[in-house]
Design a binder for these strands. Structure first.
Length: 256
DNA sequence: CTGTGTTTAACTAACT
DNA sequence: AGTTAGTTAAACACAG
């Protein structure tokens, strides 16, 4: 007998922890990351139980996001302004629910100090990149309102001092295959979530351009890092395009 | 000001 | 029964 395509549990509390609910929401999104408000929305859409007492459970959920290392806060990309960051799952946390229970994991997912420091360094580098990009854009004339997000802004004469792109404090790239098994909470993720497309949505990227771009490198390829790398490539490409021949960003050199 | 994020603390409940 | 994961409350800081 086919199970219902959409679980709701009516007014009953669904048999999932906040951690699993949040993981489902994140996992159901195309980019495998969501802002807080959309995590709320995912949960409320699917589970009527959570349409009440929102203050209570949303506070709990935020607590979980901050408290648990399995959730990673990714800074917003500069072309998607808004409040709050994006949240994603730590790549090593995919098998948190291996024991099959969505209520209680066998073991809490905790990063070791070093791992946490590395991750924080990467995310700080990302945030720093974003700030620099925004600063640089602020110094340039605003793009025409109809322009596409990444269409290069106009190239004026050198702006007073082009915002320096940040030094990046990272790190070695250890290519690693994606998690062996997708996160399977088959119970909830009804329509097979679209796979992350390997190619950027913006087709103006050329392979050579991307390859020539300085990149922040990350220790751990994961959905958010891939997305970050992709958008960095786009932004850098747009920046380089806009500024040529006036200014090309200095390379982002990994620190030895 | 409101939503977001962090932290501490007390509690309940599941697991060993 | 002890341990630990998860929930709830609450105080507070910060940012848009």
């Amino acid at each position: 007998m086919p199970r219902p395509s959409r679980e709701s549990y009516g007014d009953q509390k669904p048999p999932y922890s906040y951690i699993s609910l949040t993981a489902m929401a994140i996992w159901s999104s195309p980019e495998r990351m969501l802002p807080l408000s959309e995590i709320y929305r995912f949960i409320m859409d699917r589970f009527p139980y959570y349409r009440r007492n929102t203050q209570r459970w949303q506070n709990s959920l935020r607590h979980n996001l901050s408290f648990n290392d399995c959730f990673v806060k990714v800074p917003r990309r500069p072309d998607r302004p808004g409040k709050g960051a994006y949240w994603t799952l730590h790549p090593q946390a995919f098998d948190m629910f291996e024991n099959g229970s969505l209520l209680r994991r066998r073991k809490r997912f905790k990063l070791q100090k070093g791992e946490k420091d590395n991750l924080n360094a990467e995310l700080a580098a990302l945030a720093s990149f974003n700030r620099a990009f925004l600063a640089r854009q602020a110094g340039a004339p605003p793009p025409p309102p109809t322009a596409s997000l990444y269409s290069p802004p106009m190239c004026t004469q050198l702006s007073p001092e082009p915002a320096e792109l940040p030094e990046v404090t990272s790190v070695t790239m250890l290519p690693r295959e994606r998690p062996r098994r997708a996160f399977t909470i088959e119970a909830l993720l009804e329509p097979e979530p679209p796979r992350m497309s390997p190619s950027p949505p913006n087709s103006m990227l050329t392979m050579q351009a991307v390859q020539a771009m300085p990149r922040i490198e990350f220790t751990m390829p994961s959905p958010y890092v891939l997305a970050a790398q992709r958008y960095q490539a786009e932004l850098l490409q747009a920046a380089a395009h806009a500024l040529r021949p006036c200014y090309l960003p200095p390379p982002l050199l990994p620190v030895a």
